[in-house]
C-alpha cells in the first residue's frame, strides 16, 4: 500500500526579479514500511521537497504551483494550517541536518521530547515524562540524562535526541534531512546503525534526504536521484547502483573516490548545476551531459521505465532515440 504519493509537484520561489524553479514536476511514491533515499547535490531541491510535504514552505516567497501530495489517501496540500499542525510531529516528523541548531538551548532534552508528546496526546505530564525516558533509552542515551541541557551532549548524542523527538509519537513517516552529515564517520556509523535497528523494530517509513550514496546503500530500499528540481532516475538499490542508467547518476558515481577501486583520475561531471532561475529549455542536465544530442537542448525528456520499477528521465531511453544513441 502506498503511504505517500507525490504527483507532479512543482514548487517555485517567486522573487521580485525572477522565479527560482526549485522543484519541477516531481513524482515520488513511498510504500508503507519502506525507506526511500532522495539523493542530490546542493540546490537540487531535496529540502524544498521535504518542506513541501510538511507544509512548511515559507510563503512568500514559496509557492506550490501544482501537484498533489497524497498521504494516507488524503491530499496534504488541501489541508488547513491547523490540520497540518496536527499531522506534523504526530504522523509525519522530521529530523533536521544540524543537531547543534535544531534543539532549544534553554530547555532540557526531556522537556523537548515530552513537549511533542504533550502537544499531540492528551496524557498526564508524568506519563509524558516517562515516555520521554523511554525514548531516550531507545536511542541509546541513559534515562538519567533527561534533565540535562543540549550543551551537555556531544554532536552525535544531540542527533540522537533529535531522532528521539521525531519518533516520540510513533509517526508513520519520518523525513530525515541529512541526519548524519554533520557527524564524524565513527559517530555516523553508530547513528546509521541505530536508524536501521529502529526501523526494523518500529517499522516507520522513511524519506532519507542526503548527498551521500554510501549512506543510502546502508539504509534505503529505493532511491530517487534529483537534479535541478527533477527526479532523473528512480529505482531500487540494484537498479541505481548496478544498473545505473541516467548520465547524471553515472557521473555521480564517477566523481566518487572509491576505497575498493584504485583510479588515478576521477571522472567529474563537467560544469556546474544550472541556475534555478534560468533552467535550460530542454533537459536541465544537457549542458553537462556527455551523451547529449540535439534533441536534449530543445525538448524536455519524459520518464521511461526501462525495467519494472526503474524509471529514467532521459532521451537516451526513448523508443525513437536512435539518433541519440549513435552519438553515444
Amino acid at each position: 500500500m502506498k503511504l505517500l504519493e507525490i504527483k507532479d509537484l512543482t514548487i517555485h520561489y517567486v522573487l521580485d526579479e525572477d522565479t527560482v524553479e526549485a522543484v519541477n514536476h516531481i513524482d515520488l511514491a513511498l510504500e508503507k514500511g519502506e525507506a526511500l533515499g532522495l539523493v542530490g547535490e546542493t540546490g537540487a531541491g531535496k529540502t524544498t521537497t521535504a518542506l513541501g510535504i510538511l507544509g512548511l514552505i515559507p510563503d512568500p516567497p514559496g509557492k506550490v504551483i501544482s501537484g498533489e501530495i497524497i498521504f494516507e489517501e488524503e491530499n496534504l496540500l488541501t489541508k488547513s494550517a491547523g490540520q497540518m499542525r496536527k499531522i506534523r510531529g504526530e504522523k509525519i516528523s522530521m529530523v533536521f541536518q544540524d543537531p547543534m541548531t535544531a534543539l532549544n538551548p534553554v530547555l532540557t532534552v526531556g522537556d523537548q521530547i515530552s513537549e511533542v508528546i504533550k502537544l499531540h496526546q492528551n496524557i498526564p505530564i508524568a506519563e509524558a515524562t516517562a515516555r520521554a525516558c523511554q525514548m531516550l533509552e531507545m536511542v541509546g542515551i541513559p534515562a538519567e540524562r533527561i534533565n540535562e541541557y543540549p550543551h551537555q551532549f556531544s554532536g552525535g548524542m544531540k542527533q540522537r535526541v533529535v531522532i528521539a523527538i521525531a519518533l516520540a509519537c510513533n509517526p508513520t513517516l519520518l523525513i530525515a534531512d541529512e541526519p548524519t552529515t554533520a557527524l564524524d564517520v565513527t559517530i555516523q556509523a553508530q547513528v546509521i546503525d541505530m536508524i536501521r535497528d529502529l526501523r526494523a523494530k518500529i517499522g516507520t517509513s522513511m524519506l532519507l534526504i542526503t548527498h551521500d550514496l554510501g549512506v543510502v546503500a546502508d539504509i534505503c530500499d529505493k532511491v530517487a536521484i534529483i537534479y535541478a528540481g527533477e527526479i532523473v532516475e528512480y529505482g531500487n538499490l540494484t537498479h541505481i547502483y548496478n544498473e545505473t542508467a541516467h548520465p547524471y547518476t553515472k557521473g555521480l558515481f564517477g566523481s566518487l573516490p572509491r576505497l575498493d577501486i584504485m583510479v588515478n583520475r576521477l571522472n567529474p561531471i563537467p560544469g556546474i548545476m544550472p541556475d534555478p532561475t534560468d533552467l535550460p529549455q530542454g533537459c536541465s542536465f544537457a549542458p553537462r551531459c556527455l551523451n547529449k544530442c540535439d534533441r536534449c537542448d530543445i525538448e524536455p525528456p519524459q520518464n521511461h521505465e526501462i525495467s519494472p520499477g526503474h524509471i529514467v528521465r532521459c532521451h537516451l531511453y526513448a523508443e525513437d532515440a536512435d539518433d541519440c544513441r549513435e552519438v553515444k
Partner: peptide, 12 residues
C-alpha cells in the same frame, strides 16, 4: 574502525 565506518557507495 575508521575504515569500516565509511559508508560504501556500493551494494555488493
Amino acid at each position: 574502525a575508521l575504515l569500516s565506518a565509511i559508508p560504501d557507495p556500493s551494494i555488493d
